[in-house]
Write a protein that binds this DNA or RNA. Structure first.
Lengths: 221, 221
DNA sequence: GTCTATAGGCTGATAGAC
DNA sequence: GTCTATCAGCCTATAGAC
């Protein structure tokens, strides 16, 4: 029980800046393996033994840090959302017209999807799960918390698009909420089809991300 | 075993035009309940007993018509894809410039998503599953077959967009394949966020569908 | 901290009565 | 055609050794 709290503490620490040592390493290693398993086999399709096998350990290790499989899944999801938030927030704060900011935000979102395929595939899976009603009360609480983050994430795009309408860089008259759902859908769907090619460079990835972003932004400009 | 074949025969019949009577009714009823269960609880989260309970029956009935849970899932998926194909094909054959056709195709796609939420949520789930490697050989065969249909579906949009480039109604220079993936993503994502409001009329749905389509098409025009 | 062993519950699929 | 009964396997989570 105490260890679960230690993990919580670690999690909130890293949400700041630094990670601190061997405990963080253990947890991060588990999260990485879990992200891969959940991505490849789905939440219900993954057993804790699967994650343990990939880790080269047994489930004792995992249950020492995580209360339950659900807890593990949501911790992966949380980390994926954190990476997304960081990238988009940083793009948003770089200035320019609403339209320019939107372009950079979408590009950053897309690039993060491409460079964190496992974590972001879990995020998409989690969003999908929110649609499911067969959830335990425990899952419901975690899901609601994460959907709250997700909502704030979506609002960043909504606000920036409104900003663009105010400064004249984004077309008036479009239903902003609907437009944002469309554009986020286009980017999120990358979790389904995008696979990095074996020899793909970061520059090539950036090109794809920019292209996706431009297509979406030119629709509302 | 013979009954599974009867079902197959029914399935291919309906892919033509007519459905024929009480056997079809039994199967269609099972498919409807299964679509709802899979949508609400996911593939692995749904037990055959869940479907049977919703049906007001026991699993004997289901296993009489479907070899396995996997088989049942894919039959729902197939039906969902059929509805999508029908709608888009019909929109595509109505003429106009490439750009106009594309607009109508996306609109038809979106409207079908909105009017068949359960079946189409299963389709999206199936596409997602194709990403998963933890599949039995049996699942792999069905998935591959369905991804083949899916690929042909995507090609309809690619062809029409190329047509639009040829007749000057669609911007040159854009990566057609990437653009189509983006626009299909925007529409497919509706399976995640769209819920019909209790009092929503077909006219209101059409408005939303058109709006989504316009946003995507104006990005490539 | 990590392992082994195991309890306890659920589920896919089948067999056979009616 | 549909139901009841049941088996066999798997998986989450815990307890306790080391």
């Amino acid at each position: 029980m105490a260890n679960h709290d230690m993990h919580r503490e670690w999690a909130s620490k890293t949400r700041g800046q630094e990670d601190s040592g061997h405990l963080a390493d253990s947890v991060a290693e588990i999260l990485d393996c879990a992200a891969l398993c959940f991505t490849e086999m789905g939440f219900q399709g993954t057993s804790i033994d699967d994650v343990a096998r990939r880790l080269g350990a047994t489930k004792g290790r995992i249950y020492h840090y995580f209360r339950s499989k659900t807890d593990l899944f949501f911790e992966v999801h949380r980390e994926g959302m954190r990476r997304l938030m960081d990238a988009v927030n940083s793009a948003m704060s770089q200035g320019g017209t609403g339209r320019e900011k939107l372009l950079h935000m979408i590009e950053a979102h897309a690039l993060t999807m491409m460079q964190n395929t496992a974590y972001e595939a879990v995020v998409v899976q989690g969003v999908h799960m929110h649609r499911l009603s067969a959830t335990t009360p425990e899952q419901r609480v975690s899901l609601d918390e994460l959907m709250d983050i997700r909502h704030r994430f979506e609002q960043l795009f909504v606000e920036t698009m409104r900003e663009g309408q105010a400064d004249g860089s984004v077309r008036e008259g479009a239903d902003v909420s609907l437009a944002v759902k469309g554009l986020l859908g286009a980017v999120n769907w990358m979790a389904i089809w995008y696979r990095p090619r074996p020899d793909e460079t970061p520059e090539q990835q950036q090109l794809i991300a920019r292209h996706v972003a431009e297509l979406q932004v030119s629709g509302i400009a």
